[in-house]
Amino acid sequence: MMFSILNMEFSDRVKARMKELKISAVELAASVGVSKGAVSHWTSGSNLATGQKLVALAKALRCNENWLMTGKGTPDQEHADPSFDSDYALINQLSAKGSSGNGYINDHIEVVGGLAFKRDWLRRMGLKPEKLCVAYNHGESNWPTLTDGDVVLIDISSKSPTSGSMFAMHDADQEVIFKRLIREISGGWIIRSDNQDKTRYPDMPISAEGMRGVDIIGKIVWRGGAM
């Protein structure tokens, strides 16, 4: 899946620095101020360090945050980014695209940067920075909600379908789609595009049983794009 590929690249850089500096997981955990389990998540690729934990991890590994997160530049290259300020959380921005049409195949996913969000806004929204990622919309089937090239914020901790919300999902061909879910009175669901041209973008009914088999990546909780 798209996120495991991303995390593996991050974990490789963490392990490489630990090996070079001869730092154990216990020593790294103590330096960063986290549990040994958190370090295990970073080195196994099951989770990413974000925000202030990323800053502390980079300091402990004697490298800059940008290289550690994206692999760009060199470990000792100077990096000053105001988005790492304590008032902001830097959310990983992926090269991944989700289609508002028939699906988008992402052959390769990588972190291409970060997008800063105010921490107090995230708290008000009930969102955790470490459970968020930023991706791109492709296509016009969700116009006017989403237009081609829009940026979307995805909460990957929210995988349970809720009626009226828009989600990032994998379709049957493992392509990424952005669609709204509508619960029917019968108990079934409709996978819907916001575009009102239903000749081009028809509703896709699915049974309650079928919905349980849908691979939901996460809920789309914010979008940004041109006016």
Rank of each mutant, 00 (worst) to 15 (best):
P75K: 06
P75C: 06
D76F: 02
D76I: 05
Q77D: 14
E78F: 07
E78I: 06
H79D: 15
A80D: 15
S83D: 11
D85E: 13
D87A: 12
D87E: 15
Y88V: 08
A89D: 11
A89Y: 07
A89M: 06
I91R: 04
N92T: 10
K97C: 09
G98H: 00
S99G: 14
S99D: 07
S100K: 03
G101W: 03
N102A: 08
G103F: 08
Y104H: 13
Y104C: 07
I105G: 00
N106G: 04
D107T: 04
H108D: 10
H108M: 04
E110F: 02
V111Y: 02
V111T: 11
V112S: 10
G113R: 04
L115V: 13
L115D: 08
F117A: 01
K118I: 00
D120Q: 10
D120Y: 10
D120P: 00
W121R: 11
L122S: 07
L122H: 10
R123Y: 05
R124L: 12
M125L: 13
L127M: 12
K128E: 15
K128D: 14
K128H: 14
P129L: 12
E130V: 12
K131Q: 14
K131H: 15
K131D: 15
K131L: 14
L132H: 09
L132M: 14
V134G: 05
Y136S: 14
N137S: 14
E140K: 07
S141E: 08
N142W: 04
P144S: 11
T145R: 11
L146H: 12
L146G: 10
L146M: 10
T147W: 01
G149C: 11
V152Y: 08
I154D: 03
D155K: 04
D155S: 05
D155G: 05
D155F: 03
D155R: 06
S157K: 05
S157N: 08
S158M: 04
K159M: 06
G164M: 04
G164D: 05
G164V: 06
S165R: 12
S165K: 15
M166H: 00
M166D: 07
F167P: 01
F167S: 01
A168L: 12
A168P: 03
M169C: 11
H170E: 14
H170Y: 15
D171T: 03
Q174R: 13
E175D: 08
F178P: 04
F178G: 03
F178S: 05
K179A: 02
I182T: 09
I182M: 09
R183V: 00
R183W: 00
I185Q: 03
I185V: 06
G187E: 02
G187M: 03
G188T: 00
W189A: 01
I190L: 15
I190C: 01
S193R: 01
S193E: 01
N195A: 02
Q196T: 09
D197T: 08
D197V: 09
D197R: 06
T199D: 13
T199R: 12
Y201L: 04
I206M: 13
I206A: 07
I206H: 07
A208E: 11
G210R: 02
M211A: 06
R212W: 00
G213D: 04
D215C: 07
I216L: 08
I217P: 02
